[in-house]
């Protein structure tokens, strides 16, 4: 029963990883940009939530009302002012610029908040749980998983059913021809980054409620998100959720064997899948 419990907890943890991954997946899908600063932006969101919830005396879950638009606006500005200048055939500029951004965010947080671990206090909901027979489920992990499913369903709907999604797909297909349709590429990219960071804000707040975080916590969040994307198959949003779940389960099972193996087990499963199914477990049909 312990093992089944570990698998279920791991699957729920996978919801959080899918949230880390969804923003990464979105901007890769629209503009082929891999944002190395993604993990640091998740952590930055957690700090923004910390400051707003402490400053205004809000529950961090309520602080989302502020954090999500703030991060989205930041994403739009970041894309328009900096990242759009790096977009082109050469992949080096966006890579190096987002890498630089990652170092800047990390050290700026270090200056502003020190290296001490912080945590978001969400109150009784953190420890609330429901029992299903012998299995006990935390309310927060279930909530996070449900939000992840909702976010992915929402992104899927947006992509395939709305004018914005059409603009994203057209721009992703052929940037110059999309421009001929009156779509301003710079603006479309800005919107994609805004949306990505809105999801990132959710991920950051949930991360901060679940565990303590510090300015250096971004790197591993980027890596978890990236692993979920690759395990699930590039360009497949539901696959990303599957990838997150597999990663989460690998980690909780690893931790069950030896607490030191938690993260390592996740990486090894990722490398194993890369070795046997390099295009991920759920590759996109048309890709």
């Amino acid at each position: 029963m312990d093992w089944i419990n570990a698998i279920i907890q791991g699957a729920l943890l996978g919801g959080l990883y899918a949230l880390f991954a969804a923003g990464l997946s979105l901007i890769f899908g629209v503009m082929r940009l891999v944002n190395i600063a993604h993990g640091d932006l998740i952590v930055l969101s957690a700090y923004v939530a910390l400051t707003t919830s402490v400053g205004l005396g809000l529950n961090p879950l309520l602080a989302l009302v502020i954090v999500v638009p703030v991060m989205a606006a930041f994403g739009y500005a970041l894309q328009r002012l900096i990242l759009n200048r790096t977009m082109g055939d050469d992949l080096l500029p966006p890579l190096l610029v987002t890498f630089g951004l990652s170092v800047i965010i990390q050290n700026a947080l270090l200056m502003g908040y020190s290296a001490d671990p912080q945590k978001l206090q969400a109150g009784p909901i953190e420890t609330a749980s429901v029992s299903l027979g012998p299995i006990t489920l935390g309310v927060m992990p279930v909530l996070v998983f449900a939000v992840a499913v909702a976010v992915i369903a929402g992104l899927q709907w947006m992509f395939y059913r709305t004018a914005l999604g059409r603009a994203f797909r057209a721009t992703s297909d052929r940037q110059d021809i999309a421009q001929l349709m009156g779509l301003n590429r710079a603006h479309v990219f800005g919107l994609a980054m805004a949306l990505s960071l809105a999801v990132t804000a959710l991920a950051g707040v949930f991360l901060g409620i679940r565990t303590s975080f510090d300015p250096a916590a971004g790197a591993s969040r980027l890596i978890f998100g990236f692993e979920a994307v690759i395990i699930g198959g590039l360009g497949n949003l539901w696959g990303t959720l599957g990838g997150g779940v597999i990663l989460g389960i690998a980690q909780t099972l690893g931790a069950k064997i030896n607490p030191g193996y938690q993260i390592l087990a996740g990486h090894l499963v990722f490398l194993l899948i890369l070795a046997i199914r390099p295009r991920g477990l759920f590759p996109r049909m048309d890709g």
Partner: peptide, 16 residues
Amino acid sequence: FPSLSVEENLIIGGQL
């Protein structure tokens, strides 16, 4: 646009 259906290609032409 290969990811768009015939109708979506037409609609996006009129999106202005």
